[in-house]
Amino acid sequence: MRQTPAHELIEALDILLQRLNDFSTLLPQSNLPFWLPDEQISNLPQCAALFSDIWYRDGQDGRVTRSQHGLIGADDKLIDLAHSVNAAKQSFQTLATQHRLSQDSDLQNQLTRRESFLAETLQHHGYSRLHLRQCYRLIPIIETRPVKIGFSWYTSGRSIKQLTPEQALQRLQKMDTSQTHIQMQIDALGHLMPGDMLAQLQTQVPVMRANLLWKQDDRMIRKARNVSLPMLILLQTGETLPEHNQPLSSPPEQRSRNLRSDLKIDPVPFLPSLRVHKYNN
């Protein structure tokens, strides 16, 4: 008999939990070098718990994930287990997405949210406190040792979505239009010229970025990636961790880059209730 989507989903989660358990059991047994800058996560057993942490804590905002950067030397067996964990994560995410879409095809724009029917399914099977964002994130694996890794906080990230005045008006009209500040913004839209476009800005949370450097023949190869978990680096016998810096444990409070003088978007909000700005002429 063919399994239902819900049973497939729970089975995929059980496989993921087993592989996380195998990985977290093997990791503390490693004798290879590692670097973990956080005092609260300073050894391999604590790090293993971080990799296996896919659950909510009381009062935790579902949009926030518990993150930690670092470097962990790994042998072939640990690397293989990490790949198996990542494969299980991807399988579970695919089934979770399909399960949600099978319930309601209009949810394609909400795939990053923990929808109520998925939560109810998990709760029915004893998994009510699963944190999907922490569940989906992959273990970062580096199978060719870099010569150098530079860590830095990226605090200037933001998403920009273009809106027409008509779209902005529709969104304002869904708010309490009896409020004076909403009416003022609706009136402001009436002064725009035909063809004007607006920009809706969303500041992104600071992320740790790793800049990796490899030397290949006479060339230097660079690659950057965001990291929310310590990176596993395949080390051969006698190899050490790559050269690396030690960034601040928390991001700076201000943007790390100065605003460009030719910034195309007016930094002053045009429609504050929507975080919408005008483009400079």
Rank of each mutant, 00 (worst) to 15 (best):
H191P: 00
I139T: 08
P247L: 11
M184Q: 14
L271T: 13
D218W: 15
L107Q: 08
A96N: 11
D106A: 00
T237S: 03
A224K: 05
T121E: 12
T144C: 08
N281P: 09
L212H: 05
Y127S: 00
V205K: 06
P194Y: 07
N109D: 12
R57H: 10
K89R: 15
D80G: 11
P251S: 01
Y127Q: 01
L13N: 02
T112V: 00
W35R: 09
L36R: 14
K174V: 07
L163N: 03
Q134P: 05
N43Q: 14
R158F: 10
L20Y: 12
D176M: 04
I149S: 10
H244F: 09
L232E: 05
P252G: 07
L13H: 06
W55V: 05
P28Y: 10
R2S: 08
L101I: 07
L189E: 01
Y56H: 02
Y127L: 01
F92G: 03
L235K: 03
T180K: 15
L212W: 04
S159P: 03
K264T: 13
L259P: 04
L192A: 10
R137E: 07
D218N: 15
G73F: 07
M184A: 13
T144P: 02
P146G: 04
A168N: 02
H99N: 12
T97H: 09
L248D: 15
H124W: 08
Q68L: 09
S152H: 05
V276R: 02
R260H: 07
S261T: 07
S159W: 07
D61K: 10
Y279E: 08
N280G: 14
I182G: 04
V276D: 03
Y56T: 00
P33E: 09
I221W: 14
Q103S: 08
M208W: 14
L169G: 00
H191L: 04
